[in-house]
Amino acid sequence: MIVIAHVSDIHIDAGERATARTRAVLRHLEELPYDLAAVLVSGDIADHADPAEYDRARALLTGRHPLVVCPGNHDDRAAFRAGLGPLLHEEGDPAPAAPVDQVLRGDGFVLAVCDSSIPGKHDGYLEDSTLERLDRVLTDTPRDTPVLVAFHHPPVPLNTPYVDEIRQFGEERLAALAARHPHLTAFLAGHAHTAAATTFAGRPLLVAPGVVNTIRLPWEQPSPDSPYVHRDALPGVAFHVLDAEGRLTTHYRTVPVGG
Rank of each mutant, 00 (worst) to 15 (best):
4 I>Y: 11
4 I>T: 08
5 A>F: 11
5 A>N: 11
6 H>K: 13
8 S>T: 07
8 S>I: 07
12 I>R: 12
15 G>K: 11
18 A>E: 13
19 T>H: 14
21 R>H: 13
21 R>F: 12
28 H>L: 00
29 L>H: 13
29 L>P: 08
34 Y>D: 07
36 L>F: 12
36 L>H: 12
37 A>F: 12
38 A>G: 10
38 A>V: 09
38 A>S: 14
41 V>I: 15
45 I>Y: 07
50 D>F: 01
50 D>H: 14
53 E>M: 10
54 Y>V: 03
56 R>A: 15
57 A>Y: 03
65 H>V: 04
68 V>W: 09
72 G>Q: 05
74 H>I: 00
81 R>T: 04
86 P>F: 06
90 E>M: 15
96 P>M: 05
100 V>R: 02
104 L>D: 07
107 D>S: 15
110 V>F: 07
110 V>C: 13
112 A>T: 08
118 I>W: 02
119 P>W: 03
120 G>Y: 03
121 K>P: 00
122 H>Y: 09
123 D>V: 00
125 Y>I: 00
126 L>D: 04
127 E>V: 01
136 R>N: 10
141 T>N: 06
145 T>L: 14
148 L>N: 07
149 V>E: 05
150 A>F: 09
154 P>A: 11
157 P>S: 04
157 P>V: 08
161 P>Q: 12
163 V>G: 00
167 R>K: 14
169 F>V: 14
169 F>A: 09
170 G>Y: 03
171 E>W: 05
174 L>S: 07
183 H>W: 08
192 A>H: 10
197 A>D: 14
200 F>Y: 12
200 F>I: 12
202 G>Q: 10
209 P>K: 11
211 V>S: 02
213 N>F: 12
215 I>E: 02
215 I>A: 14
216 R>H: 02
219 W>A: 14
222 P>G: 00
227 P>W: 05
229 V>Y: 06
240 H>M: 06
241 V>F: 01
244 A>C: 05
252 Y>K: 03
254 T>S: 15
257 V>F: 12
